[in-house]
């Protein structure tokens, strides 16, 4: 029952802001029409992920392949301008300040999947000049590709290299088009969306489902009974670059 109120207040604020700037675009003054979740939608207060990197064998890319396939992530020819949502990095690269020359060999060879951390205090969201990237109440940091102006402030602001820019048209570089998910237009930023489109219809994230080693856990960080919380309670875990205060919600068992 609280929802309609907050929407109308937001709309009102927006309208006041626009009016203050001297422009009142007709669209912004309208109250957003009502929506309803899909009957099977998965809901949580605060989505989070735990990756048991001990189970990730060297060279494994199964989660990356699954994710990039469902989300139409292209293979851009120039690796410097590539687009990536989830991909393996070495321990040293994923945790650049937590290394020393004598770490155990097995760990160094492991493939640590890295992705957007859906930070609780996301710097990317703070800097966005259009709210094209924003944090949803369920903790997912989302991108609105229809609104992004491509200023790339968020790419500078993300300390995890989680964001990619579409430097060129990605369409010709998508090996196999998934008709159920859109591609992106050149000129916008993109990143992992915690499989928002799958959660919304009752499916768990694609990387988690694809992983043969069951190394990826996904659940509600606010629910002590969730698999995520249980894994956190019984293992030594790391987050990337905690000293920056972004409070990442992807945890690693090392």
């Amino acid at each position: 029952m609280k929802k309609p109120l907050s929407i109308s207040r937001r709309t009102l604020l927006k309208a006041t802001g626009a009016a203050a700037l001297g422009i009142i675009p007709a669209g912004t003054l309208l109250v957003r029409a009502a929506g309803k979740p899909h009957p099977k939608a998965l809901q949580a207060k605060n989505w989070a992920m735990v990756i048991n990197a001990k189970l990730c064998p060297p060279g494994c890319r199964i989660c990356q392949e699954a994710c990039h396939k469902v989300h139409n992530v292209p293979n851009m020819p120039d690796p410097k301008q590539d687009v990536k949502w989830i991909w393996p990095e070495s321990y040293n690269s994923a945790f650049p300040y937590e290394t020393h020359p004598y770490t155990d060999q097995a760990n160094e060879k492991r493939a640590y999947p890295v992705l957007c951390n859906h930070c609780e205090n996301p710097s990317c969201v703070r800097v966005c000049p259009t709210k094209a990237t924003f944090q949803r109440p369920d903790g997912v940091v989302m991108m609105d590709y229809h609104r992004c102006i491509g200023c790339r402030f968020c790419m500078a602001a993300c300390p995890y290299g989680a964001r990619s820019f579409n430097f060129k048209d990605p369409r010709p570089h998508i090996p196999q088009l998934n008709p159920a998910y859109p591609t992106r237009t050149p000129g916008v930023v993109e990143k992992c969306n915690f499989c928002d489109e799958r959660l919304a219809v009752g499916q768990m994230p694609a990387c988690m489902e694809a992983c043969p080693a069951k190394a990826i856990l996904f659940g509600d960080l606010n629910d002590p009974a969730s698999p995520v919380r249980q894994a956190l309670a019984s293992n030594v875990t790391l987050q990337r670059k905690t000293k920056l205060g972004t409070r990442p919600k992807v945890f690693y068992i090392v």
Binding site: K14, G17, A18, L21, I23, P25, T28, C128, P129, T130, K131, A132, R147, I149
Partner: peptide, 8 residues
């Protein structure tokens, strides 16, 4: 969009 969706 910077002015249509002002983000203080």
């Amino acid at each position: 969009n910077i002015m249509l969706y002002p983000s203080p």
